[in-house]
Amino acid sequence: MPEIDTNCVETKIPGFLQHHGTALVEVQEHMGDLTLVVQPEAIRQLIQALKTNFGFEMLLDLFAMDYEIRTQYSGALCGSLPTLFTSKKRRVRLKVFIGETNPEIDSIHDIYAAANWFEREAWDLFGITFKGHPHLTRILCHQEFVGHPLRKDYPSDGYQQLRKAIRSAGM
């Protein structure tokens, strides 16, 4: 486990490390933004704790990234990054590294309802499966679309001819 600079976590989320420090892989701070890199299996438990015990009442965003250059996390590619926000002007971003082949992670739609569409977007564009999501279907791309366009292995000129009209049942 890498060395973790815990000062910034304690300043922004007092008492957090005492209970949840073991789930942390790394702590990143850049221009005042706190990012906690956490273990994938701990994500639900951590987000639930941040919501109920630390006042992070709002999910601002949830998205994925495809890191082409991988250094310290060998084989890791896609991460889901929920950004949580409190009314006390505190923000925290959680980062999870998951594998390139069949990336999957637990859904948090039942903790933050706003995660529902964000997770569909991350599935549509990156192909990340959110376990426990009620209907993980495409939200932006056409239903005929093949592949996940924001993955780095999807070509930037990968246009697809789509013909069928969208079925109302498929909405």
Partner: peptide, 18 residues
């Protein structure tokens, strides 16, 4: 009601890659 929101999606993020 059910919504279909993808019509305005032009994937600028992908264009930004190049």
């Amino acid at each position: 009601m059910k919504l279909e929101i993808g019509y305005l999606h032009r994937c600028f993020e992908k264009m930004a890659e190049t």
